[in-house]
Design a protein around this nucleic acid. Structure first.
Lengths: 133, 133
DNA sequence: TATAGGGCTTCCAGTCACTGGAAGCTCAAG
DNA sequence: CTTGAGCTTCCAGTGACTGGAAGCCCTATA
């Protein structure tokens, strides 16, 4: 398979696939003309990467997950540890965003949004704490 | 004020303050010895930036918010528009993270996490859909 | 007065995970 | 034989910093 077909079938853009090769996540062979020649296992790996990335795993996590995937002697505890750590990072991020959301939505509600310059959002950002919060 | 004191009082690291000068967010004067000389208004601006960044506004948003802040003829509608757009971006991000969280937490629960290699997380990533989901 | 230290300066490089673009080779169709 | 799509490599840019090196400036102490 050439890169275009693999991109199509894995849902990962060619540029990204080349990048993944650069950083050693996949190692496709080469045809005589210099084109990358992907096997089914490469496609499989890329699809794996696509799903792991969609779950928000970092590239380094993906690298580790892939190597665990290929290691018959892995312990599922190793996989679970990576996943749990990532899960808790996600939870942290959600909490942080919800805190922003909370503050910001109050400010937005308090702002009339008309032609006048008076604005509680700017007031809050400027450090004036006499605000709806 | 030198950069150290401003950093202290604004809560923004010196490196970041220099970066903000680089990209034109603040324009401190200079002392005879080449040191940056910050006025109270610079400090105020940096604190404004710190709070806006803490609410997740991009640097470009911050630039616009600052210039609205300094514009006596602004309309609060302009500020509100920026804030609302940002708020909806935050909502999108939260939704996306919660979807990840949903999938991932089911997978983590389903994984025994012991010494055996069998792992529903890897199974899911490998594209096997016969899974708890 | 020499020196030690801490603070300040600039500049360059690295982060993360791509993404865009340019220049040029290969291949299949007409 | 040309056209156009697909492939190659390499370089640069994204966002918002952050780390580090090399070197100047200032103050305090021995």
């Amino acid at each position: 398979m050439n890169i275009g077909e693999v991109a199509e079938r894995s849902g990962i853009p060619p540029k990204t696939i080349r990048y993944y090769e650069d950083i050693g996540l996949v190692r496709p062979q080469r045809s005589g003309n210099g084109y990358r020649a992907f096997r089914e296992t490469d496609l499989h790996k890329l699809a794996f990467l696509g799903r792991a990335r969609a779950l928000g795993f970092s590239i380094e996590d993906c690298r580790n997950l892939l190597s665990l995937y290929e290691d018959e002697t892995r312990e599922s505890a190793q996989v679970k540890a990576i996943a749990e750590e990532h899960l808790s990072a996600i939870d942290d991020k959600i909490a942080q965003l919800q805190e922003m959301r909370e503050t910001l939505s109050h400010l937005v509600e308090a702002c009339r949004g008309d032609h006048r310059p008076d604005c509680p959002i700017l007031k809050d950002l400027s450090g004036d704490l006499k605000n709806i919060r």
